[in-house]
Amino acid sequence: MNMIRQSLRGLATQAKTAGETSAVKFNIAQPPKYTLASLRSFPSLEPHNFIPLPTEFLDVPLRRDFLWSAVVFEADRARVGSGNVITRGDKPYSHKKLLPQKGTGRARQGDANSPSRYNEVKAHGIKAPHDWSTKLPFKIYSKAVATAFADQYRNGKLFVVGKIDSTSNIREADDTIVDFKYPHEEATKQFVDAHDLRKLNLLFITDVQRDNLLQSTEVLAKKMDVIVKEELEVRDILKANRIYIELPALQWLIGKYGSD
């Protein structure tokens, strides 16, 4: 009788555990794939279209560790490495032995190039040119570029200039590239006044070199960066208060740094 009871109890517990495991459910959902950006004309910055852009480039969480790594990497890369000290190999003094080896009653001395004397000679010193550049995996750097862009996009400071079809209405005075019609400095001044950008750092990212823009922004060169897409650094993105980027340049950057 006892044996039957025990076996029955066993069956009951088995059934219970089986029921529990089948009730487990993972709440899987698909994350958003695209985020929208308005497409603008230049220099009025009037929006005329929407474009979907990938969330893995423009909607990544703000990871400060990636930004820090990338900024250190770029700063190291930018160092010239001109630090130089004199070592005894440079031989600033004569080779002559200072004292006789024996008989003076003083300590033994070699020549005046010894680093243990009171001279500028160092035993181990840095020699120019010196390469300070460090290494960073491309995947980490890519994440940093995406993170920097995503932060600016979330704060509404990223302005995409361009067009995808000919149907969109664009003002006559406007263009779909980040460039002024004339190289005169008045173009920059009017742009800054019209959009209330005084005292702000502006970053213009262009697909190819735009001469009018380069010449015109020279008056406010301290506050403005005009950069071709290949020369862009994470530091430039982080420093800017407003970013004006051409659509082909953005597509190129997403193609280079956006894929996982």
Binding site: Q30, P32, P52, Q251, I254
Partner: peptide
């Protein structure tokens, strides 16, 4: 570098955009 190809607006759905209840 192969530039990113932008899909047309008509080809994407609202579920693929943010605020689709994910998270």
């Amino acid at each position: 570098v192969k530039p990113y190809e932008i899909p047309s607006l008509s080809s994407i759905t609202a579920e693929q955009l943010p605020n689709n209840g994910f998270g």
